[in-house]
Amino acid sequence: MNLYFRLFWLFIWRVRHCNSIDFLGTSRISYRALPLDCDINCHVTNSRYPALMDLARTYMLAEMGLLKRFIKLKWLPIVNAAEFTYIRDIKPLTKFEIESKLVGWDDKYFYIEQRFVSDNILHCIVHVRGVFVCKGKQVPIDTMVKEVNFEGPRPELPPEVVKWKAFLQLKKERNI
């Protein structure tokens, strides 16, 4: 992550004044596309999206009320895979939101969908697969779910995530 001022602002101000969402709720954080976020094509550069997504996922944990608890437990989030679909570019100085939502989990990973939206226009949709680690070992998904006191049924993964999972497994099998 290379957005230190935005990270500082996130921890000093935004986390302290954030909304509250449930474990499967949608988190929304707004940003403006600054000139340094943009490339020579006068739109947000592809490398900026993952950095902004890191901030948005941190904010999502804060809105869920889990950030302080996970820091205390020394759980570190690790992205295992991500797939991006760029739909429309984000021009300089455009105000946009990143919508982040936990869409489900399996026996090993959790899956988050993140959308970049401005004025009801979808710019980019991203699926992220990740885990939490503690002292170099993966925190079991069941442990994470128990820690957040989630007692509902496991949500069914969206069809595009199911197909993406199969694609990731195929890549792994073909490249062993």
Rank of each mutant, 00 (worst) to 15 (best):
residue 72 K to V: 06
residue 24 L to P: 04
residue 91 K to C: 10
residue 61 L to A: 07
residue 64 M to A: 12
residue 129 R to Y: 04
residue 136 G to C: 02
residue 142 D to Y: 07
residue 101 K to Q: 13
residue 133 V to D: 01
residue 158 P to C: 05
residue 161 V to N: 09
residue 111 Y to H: 01
residue 45 T to I: 08
residue 91 K to F: 14
residue 132 F to E: 00
residue 70 F to R: 10
residue 114 Q to R: 00
residue 99 E to K: 13
residue 167 F to P: 01
residue 41 N to M: 14
residue 32 R to P: 07
residue 69 R to F: 10
residue 25 G to L: 04
residue 75 W to F: 01
residue 126 V to C: 12
residue 126 V to I: 05
residue 35 P to G: 10
residue 134 C to Y: 13
residue 48 R to G: 00
residue 97 E to K: 06
residue 13 W to Y: 15
residue 26 T to S: 09
residue 146 K to S: 13
residue 171 K to C: 12
residue 7 L to C: 12
residue 57 R to M: 01
residue 130 G to T: 00
residue 134 C to F: 12
residue 63 E to R: 11
residue 30 S to P: 09
residue 175 N to S: 14
residue 153 P to N: 15
residue 23 F to K: 13
residue 5 F to M: 02
residue 119 D to M: 12
residue 110 F to L: 11
residue 72 K to N: 15
residue 137 K to N: 10
residue 142 D to I: 14
residue 159 P to Q: 08
residue 70 F to C: 09
residue 95 K to T: 11
residue 64 M to E: 09
residue 105 W to F: 07
residue 99 E to H: 15
residue 148 V to I: 07
residue 143 T to G: 06
residue 90 I to D: 04
residue 57 R to N: 06
residue 76 L to R: 12
residue 35 P to N: 08
residue 11 F to C: 09
residue 173 E to A: 14
residue 127 H to I: 14
residue 147 E to V: 04
residue 123 H to R: 02
residue 110 F to N: 12
residue 114 Q to M: 00
residue 171 K to Q: 13
residue 15 V to T: 06
residue 101 K to D: 00
residue 101 K to N: 09
residue 127 H to T: 13
residue 108 K to Y: 09
residue 98 I to K: 08
residue 9 W to R: 10
residue 6 R to M: 14
residue 85 T to F: 14
residue 43 H to P: 05
residue 138 Q to H: 05
residue 44 V to K: 06
